[in-house]
Design a protein around this nucleic acid. Structure first.
Lengths: 335, 335
DNA sequence: CTGCCATATGTATTCGGTTACATCAAGGAA
DNA sequence: TTCCTTGATGTAACCGAATACATATGGCAG
């Protein structure tokens, strides 16, 4: 490995000058600068980032904590963070939490140990209190797709209440009045917000949500299947089913198919997220889209500006709205 | 930030001793050890990984270069790497290449600059020659899902020839004889290997592949759609269509649906990969599965053992076999 | 009691950079 | 000519740990 010392010797200057050529070229005389650059080129010198980070007490890197790497939901947000930071010359490094509170803690700290200048945390499992304490201690960490009212300015998220309301309004506009829903785990704040929005939207039309038509799912396909079966078994009639994510909607469609229930003729199904499975289902899933890439990008930029102290975050959008993507699983309710 | 120096002062020992307590507890006297541990606990000390990496000239981490974070294909392999390395106490850090040769180079070097002990590279875009040179220079780097015969022991991959042959054998066993295929871009070695296997498998049954029934796709859904349209337009009859990945199979099914061609009654469709879209399509896609998590895990372990010099890699499986996952898109050909 | 060895701990250097401060030379103003 | 300013470069400390080597302590054999 070639070090800055070797470059400096070859070029007949001090290491300080080489360092300047790399980080602050304009303060170096043009002749020396070119000579040093030539040597760097010739030796194929590349600065050791570890040493640089240590000396400069900054890593020009933002860390990201997500549940896992294998689902598109997290992948898209991570991609959003990475592409946005790339534009401002920052790197991204991600660590997975395995969807446990301990994993979230460990990943977060581990990123900090690596001297990430900021970290973007997607946490489903840590309690509000603990998050608040951690955010207080880590002034450059931000929350991804989670809202903590004590630290609202450190959160970048989808407005889930609005998303739930939108779902209600859309289904109502299609003439549905008996609406069922499959939620995520109730411990997730998303679940409660979407439910709250759903209630609001229904209330506007004078509809109240029948508690028997609310089933708890797990955000996975299997949970969607069993929850749907459960709803169907209650024998309470409903014409539309709002699932809190697309995977569960896929499960719902599967259960309907197995029971010979036609979608959307007999039951309309509405998903949430708009990840790729939505467009692969048959019929294609109508869903509430959340702009995951944009949300990730905003979170990355927020962490970056907190880290660099740039006030550039003023004006940054941190709350995002969901929108309906109409495909083929919702149709007008029979009059 | 609390440093090792502060801990050492509080505990009344030297920094060397604190360092030992952390990395080599058994050589420290039990009384001092406990005292130091108590101080570490009380102060909430966490070793600065950057400093540690610099001093020890190792980072206990393996880097991974992949195209992007948003597709399950890469996500699964990355997950495989991460989980496997976690078990041996190593960390993983990933960087995306944006699917360009320059991006692959940059990501690779950037990981090296961070002193990753090894790196797992998924490269579609670098030429064999350049890869060979880079692998020579980086004795702890390995190739993921790519085969370079000059560095066979540094590659972990699916046997694509076997995969192609398996596809042929399976379709033949279902009575198909007129078989079409949609490949990936021809510059990818996977494409050529799968095609070679397909030829081999067909040849065993005395069948030759009609060049007009080979269309080039792009590994994306859109490419699958247009390639299918193209194949259909040639008017040459075929009863089965082998797509080189699941996304293109999804596109193929879409085109068939639009043209009113029933799958599998009129045309059987076989995919490749077995990522989640496969099970969401209707009917569910029969496909050639590649064990992406396992492949990723093996690559991670290989890089790790090259890095640590452990001979543990002897006996490590580095070539993986594809297998058929039967679902609903392939049926017996009409006699 | 002496000497030797094993164990426990400290000292000081090192990793590869960055950066505050010192130094030096050249040019311009008085 | 002299002094001061400005720009270019060097010197040396420092970032926070790891570790080779030196040293101190205690136990035991002879």
């Amino acid at each position: 490995m070639v070090t800055i010392l070797q470059v400096s010797r070859q070029a007949g200057v001090s290491t300080a000058t080489v360092s300047r050529v790399i980080n602050n070229p304009e303060v170096v005389g043009i002749r020396t600068r070119e000579r040093v650059q030539e040597v760097i080129e010739r030796l194929g010198y590349r600065p050791n980032l570890v040493a640089r980070d240590l000396a400069s007490r900054s890593s020009r890197t933002i860390g990201v904590v997500i549940n896992n790497f294998s689902s598109v939901y997290y992948g898209l947000m991570l991609e959003g963070v990475e592409l946005a930071l790339r534009k401002v010359g920052y790197k991204t490094i991600a660590e997975s939490s395995q969807a446990t509170s301990e994993g979230e803690r460990q990943a977060w700290f581990s990123l900090l140990d690596r001297q990430c200048d900021g970290v973007v945390v997607h946490s489903d499992n840590l309690e509000d209190d603990e998050l608040a304490v951690l955010l207080d201690r880590q002034p450059t960490s931000v929350l991804l797709n989670r809202y903590l009212k004590s630290h609202a300015d450190r959160c970048v998220y989808l407005d889930n209440v609005q998303g739930g309301r939108l779902a209600a309004e859309y289904l109502i506009s299609k003439g549905h009045r008996r609406i069922a829903t499959i939620t995520g785990p109730t411990k997730f704040y998303q679940t409660n917000d979407r439910l709250k929005g759903l209630h609001q939207g229904l209330a506007q039309a004078g509809i109240t949500l029948d508690p028997d038509l609310v089933a708890e799912g797990d955000f996975h396909e299997a949970g969607g299947e069993t929850a749907t079966a459960h709803l169907l078994d209650t024998q309470k009639p409903f014409t539309a089913l709002f699932c809190h994510n697309d995977e569960m909607a896929a499960g719902a469609m599967e259960t309907c198919r197995r029971r010979g229930i036609r979608v959307p003729e007999e039951i309309s199904i509405l998903g949430f997220d708009d990840v790729n499975v939505a467009s692969h289902l048959t019929p294609k899933l109508t869903t509430v889209r959340q702009p995951l890439r944009e949300i990730g990008a905003a979170a990355g930029i927020l962490a970056h500006s907190l880290a660099t102290g740039e006030a550039a975050n003023s004006g940054l959008q941190t709350v995002f709205e969901a929108e309906i993507v109409e495909r083929a699983t919702v149709m007008d309710a029979a009059p």
